[in-house]
Every structure is written in C-alpha cells, then in structure tokens.
Design a protein around this nucleic acid. Structure first.
Lengths: 206, 206, 206, 206
DNA sequence: TTTTAACCGAGACGGTACGTCACGTCTTGTG
DNA sequence: CACAAGACGTGACGTACCGTCTCGGTTAAAA
C-alpha cells in the first residue's frame, strides 16, 4: 500500500510517476498475466526505476492491488427493453462484457495476489455494490412499476448469484461466457430466484 | 501431464515413485502453498530426484494439477434430517467443510496454475458432478417423497449456485464461511430457487 | 579398466560390442571433445547400452583411456633425404601430422582425463618410445654412417625435446604447427642440441 | 570475459566483489580442482551470489581464465652462484617450485578450460616472457661477462625448451619433477643446446 | 536337454552442477 | 530528498550428465 512520507522536506514525490507505473502495470497485467509480469518490465514500460516503485509499494502484490483499485469503474448503462427478462439479459451481457475484456484477463492473472490480502476482495465488493445499485434502481424498479414484481423485490441475492456464476466460469472452470450461458443464468436461475423469493411462479421465456 | 512411454522396453516407471511424489506435493501444497513449494522440497520429501519428477511432468504446474486430480474424492455422507431445509443445511456444511480443510488451502494456493490449462477446471467439474449426484439421489428425492417438491425438481442449478457461492467467498472475497452464510445460502437462495423453479412459493425457515 | 569376469559360466561377453563402443567413443571424442561427449551418446552411436559400457569400464575416464590405448599406432615412414636436417624436418612433419589430425583433437579434448590417472601418460610414453626407436634406427644411424654425427649420438633427448615442444603448442599455447615452427624446431633446437651433445658446432640451414 | 558496462549510469560494479570471487575461485581451484569446484561453492566462499558471478563472466570457464590471469606473477629471484650451470639449476628449481605449488595443481585442473579459448595460452606466454627476461638479464648475461658464452647467446630457445619439458611432465606424463629431472634438463639439454648454438662444445658437470 | 548365470538394449532412478530469471534491497550520480 | 540505472544476495526453475539399478529377453556353457 501507499507509504506516504511524513514531512514535506526534500523533493516531493511526482504523482505522474505513480500513475505511469500503475498504467504500465495494468497494461502488462492484461498482456502477459500476473506471473509473467516482472517488476523490471513495469519499470521499463513506465520509464521508471524499481526503486521508485518500491518506494511506494512494498511488494509486487501491493502494487497490483493498487493498480486494480485505481482503474476507472465501468459505466454500465442498462437499457429499458420493456420486459424484466430482457432487461436482465442485457444487464448480464454488460457484466460479462466488462469481465471478459482486459478486466477479465487481469483478474484471472491477478487473483493469486488476492488470496493473501483482503484488498482485492474489497475491489470486487465495491464492484458488486455498484451492480447491486444498478439492479435495484433500474431493472427491478421498472419491473415493480410494471407490476411484474412485488415491491419487496431485493436485488442483493440476485447480484450475488449472477456475479458468483460469472466468476466461477471465468476463474475456475473456464467455460465459455456465451449466449447459452446468459439465458441459462437468467431463465433458470435469476427469474426462478426472483419468483421464488416473491412467492409467485416464474415465467420462463417462451 | 503424464507422458506414458510407448513401448514396454527399458526399466518401467515405478508407480510408487509417482505416488510418493504426488503425496509429497500435496502435503507441501497444503503446508506452505503453491508459491512457496519448491520442486527440490517435493523431491526431497518424496526421497526422489528432480529428474524423476520432470520425467513425468513437464513443469511444476502440470505436477500440481495431477496431484489435485489424483486426490481421493471426499465421502460426503448426507444425513436424512426429515426436512429439506435441514438436509440442505447439512449438505452445504459438508461441502464447506471439505473446501475449508487442506482442500481449500490447496485450491486457493493452486488456482493460479489452472488459469492456463483446462485441467483444474475438469477437477472442479468432476467434483460438482459428484455433489449433483448426491443432491439428486438423496436430498431432493427425499423431498419429493415427502411431497415437498414436485417430481421435476432438478439438482443441477442448485449445485451450480451453491458451489459458485462457496468458491466466490473462498477464492475472491475471502468472507467467512460461517453459519450465517450457510443460512443465507439455503434460505435466501437455495429454497427460493427451488420454489421458483417448482412454481410454488418458498417456505422460509421459521 | 577392463573387468574380466571370473568363471566361464553364462553368456560370454561379446568382443564386437567392446570394439563398437570404443570406436564410437573415439569418433565422438574427435568430433565434440571430451566434455561434450556423453555416455548416452556413445551408447547410442554404438547401438549399445550404458550398462554394457559400465560392465566393462568403471567410468567415462577409464573408457576413454582404453579407447586411446587401442587406437592403431600410426605408421611413421621416415624417408632418406640424404641430409640429417631434411630427415629431421620430414620426421617432425610426420609427427605433427599425426598429432594434428583426429589424434590431436582427441588429445586436447581428453587430456583432462589423464591428470588423475597415470594411464594416459603410459600411452604417450609408448608413443614416445616408438618415435625414439625411429629416430635411433633410421635418422641418426644414417647421419652416423654419413659421418655427420659421432657414434655416441643419442636420440633420447632429441625426441624428448621435439615431443615436448609439439605438445606445448598443441595443448597449452595453441600456436600453429606450421613450417615456420618445424624449421625453428629443427634448426634452432634439434640440430644445435645434437651438435652441442656431440661436442661439435652445429650447421644451421643455409 | 569481463563485460564492462558502457555508460557510468546506475550503481557501479563493486571491484571488491570481483576480487573476492576470483580469490574464492582460485582457492577452490587449488583445493579441489576444476571439475569439483562448483559455482555455488565459489559464490558462497566469496559471500556473493551466482547472479553476481554470471553478470561478469558468461560461464565457469571464463571466470576461471580470468582468475588465472589476475593472479600475481611470481617473483623469481635468480641468485648468482658463480657458474652458469648452477645458475641454471637454481632457475629451473624456481620454475618447478612455482609450477608445483598451488599454481601447478591449478594448471593441471584448469587446462581443459583453455583448450577452447586462446586466453589461457596468453597467460602462459606472458609467464614465459617473464622467464625469458630473467634468463636474458641475469643468467646468460652473467655467463657472457664471465666469458662462458659468446655475446650472441639467446635465452629464447632455452626458455622454450625448459618450459615445454616442465609442462610435459606436469600435464602429460606426470613424471616427478625431482633433482634427477633438473640435472637431466640442465646438463643434457640446456647446456648442450647453448653450446651447440654457440658453436662450442658443452662442458657437462663433473 | 534342461538349467543357469551372465549377457544385452532400453531406460528409470538419485544425485549434483549448470546457467537463467525474478524479487526486493542497496548504491551510485543527477536534479 | 526524489529519481533512473542497475548491481547485489537469495533462491527457484528447468536441463543435462553421471553412474547405478531394474526390466524383459537372449545366449552359450554346465549339468
């Protein structure tokens, strides 16, 4: 983690270096993965030196975590399709898209770094909170307005399940995140779950 | 991966060495984790030599994968508690227990090795199939007999969700796998899912 | 060294294997040098197996020594040129030729093996004795007959010096064994030496 | 061979490390010989690391060559005994002594490393030049002053022969470098050679 | 003829050294 | 002080070789 120096004596740290380093780290992380990314490579790409890196973060893992945390949150723009199911499909596709680009390659490569520090977890959970908010504010709200769901509908468990399923495939089994998966997820898990929680039968897609 | 020699000429490979090596690997994997486990350490513990290891597997990763695959499947003995919910709670606890012991430490430590080969995925999926079978043959069947579920009940999505949620916490967020989680999983996800899929309202725990 | 089996029971050793192995060893010795010649390579080239080699010689060094010893002695056919100096030049050229072909490459490559066992020394000395005999029986004898040398002329020191000088260049300094060297050797060392030992002035080449 | 970095940027190489490594190498070379000296052993003895060694020399051989070249030249202090023969005996004894101590063990052990690079040759020749100078400036000069030799006396061939004979025994035949050898060398080779080259009869020791 | 012991090719095995590479620290010179 | 450059100690990796051993199969002398 960032180690701020106490007094303002001497030459101040150059924030531009910091950003250049994290950018380089992120780029290499995506390109070659966590293991094959070396600190020297990061330093060279950032036109920095290892000392400048280790002055800020105490290890490769810390730096990677920070790089992940800094990355700009993806704008998920859910569209109103008129039906809850299609809204869900669209949303799940957005999430998969976000996770399949550099983001995913990155996570797959870096996950190891998280197993020993709770900080990557925090990053993921922040992300989940964002999705939860989107589900809540948009999709479910619309469905409630349409009368498809009772007012008690809770996006929490839904997001949990969707995110977990995506991570499962992405990180562990490596199965494809294709349309079949999206429909499976929405029709056989998400909608039944909402239905079961609402106390009403689900209406699978025709 | 194991490279079986074609002809039977020459001194045959000693299966005992193979097993000793994999045992040693598994033990060290659990004790110190993937990163800190060195090939020399494995060789010494197995009273073997590096050459003997590399004759069988072309890299540390390959060996670890094989070690995981060989590990005896855990006997999950689900008990009949008389109620579907309690059966599920018991089953989830068993799965968590299995994943939290050496098994979990091991998976967390080794997951990195899987990100590039589909072989760990296979291991996980085999495990999932086993749980699916248990769910099918025992828990859901009993519930059907009791009349709590229609005959169409499918354990597939249920297992998927449960396993995904456990892996999510274990590998990504690192959250505790405690009783609260078990109840959350069963009451807010598993039962509603079953209910929704069955077309009947769920019965939350009293 | 060769380890003969005691009793005559059982299948007797195949001498052809022995020869094939030594031939292969010699060939590889010349081609790639002592260090880069591996026992497996020798075995493969001889269509033999390592066991068959180690049944006969206890180490790589022993085998190499034997290979050197077995090699057919080179036929040095000194010609009568009518003058002692030209006879010497011819003889030195023959010796250099013998030492510069495979023979030399071989010695350079294998010399290390000799530093720990006195057996290569023996090989070399046998060779020296042969040259000494040639010098004695032919060159010097002719010179004595012509009256160029007194009867007391002794080929011993002469051969010693010539061989030492050749080895020096071959093994240590690596300098070229060209005509300049031959003339230097004969005119500035061999003839003066003979002259000094005979108590008469040398006659350098015109 | 040493690879000097171009610019003066970055932390400069520590010459002390270089010296410590070469010292360690030399010590082990003498103690256990070339083959049994491992790079890790050198590194440990020098309290250095393999990386530090390989940053300077690209292989074990290169390092050994450099170690030999750096070794301080032995001070050969020839004494004036009043007679050319005794001066020669003393000088030859000094050379043998120098070659029989650590120096010799070292050369025997390392000669292999030289067979492929001309650098050890250079070391040897430098040494020979030194001996030549000593012979010239001291021994022969004294003899000329005494009138034992004509002014034309040339130490070149003399040194060549003496050094070659010593190397021959040391490296190839392994024969003892004892007094008998010294007298043989001086009385039967060196003095006759000088006599023959001077055009006067030699005076063997009484 | 049958036994029997040594032979033979192939190649697995334990050991050990090699040369490479990455990490995280330390040491220069320059702003 | 920060910074770029890069040397340094540590320690793992994967490769290669040596000399031993263990297979199945063959071969000739002994019983």
């Amino acid at each position: 983690m960032n180690i701020p120096c106490g007094a303002g004596r001497g030459r101040p740290r150059d924030d531009a270096r910091e950003q250049a380093i994290l950018d380089a780290a992120l780029q290499l992380l995506v390109e070659v993965g966590y293991e094959r990314m070396s600190m020297v490579a990061v330093a060279n790409l950032a036109r920095a030196s290892k000392a400048t890196i280790y002055r800020r973060w105490s290890s490769k893992d810390e730096m990677v975590i920070e790089a992940l945390r800094r990355r700009a949150p993806v704008d998920n723009i859910p569209a109103d399709t008129g039906s809850l199911r299609d809204d869900l499909v669209a949303q799940v596709r957005l999430m998969i898209e976000a996770a399949s680009g550099p983001e995913g390659a990155l996570l797959v490569g870096v996950l190891r770094a998280a197993s020993e520090s709770p900080q990557l977890a925090e990053v993921i959970q922040t992300n989940m909170r964002q999705h939860k908010a989107e589900m809540c504010c948009c999709l479910l709200e619309r469905a409630v307005k349409r009368g498809d769901l009772p007012e008690s509908a809770d996006p929490g468990p839904l997001v949990e399940v969707i995110v977990s399923m995506i991570f499962m495939r992405l990180l562990v089994t490596g199965e494809a995140l294709d349309d079949a998966f999206v429909h499976h997820l929405v029709d056989e898990l998400a909608l039944p779950l909402l239905a079961g929680r609402a106390g009403i039968p689900a209406e699978p897609a025709s």
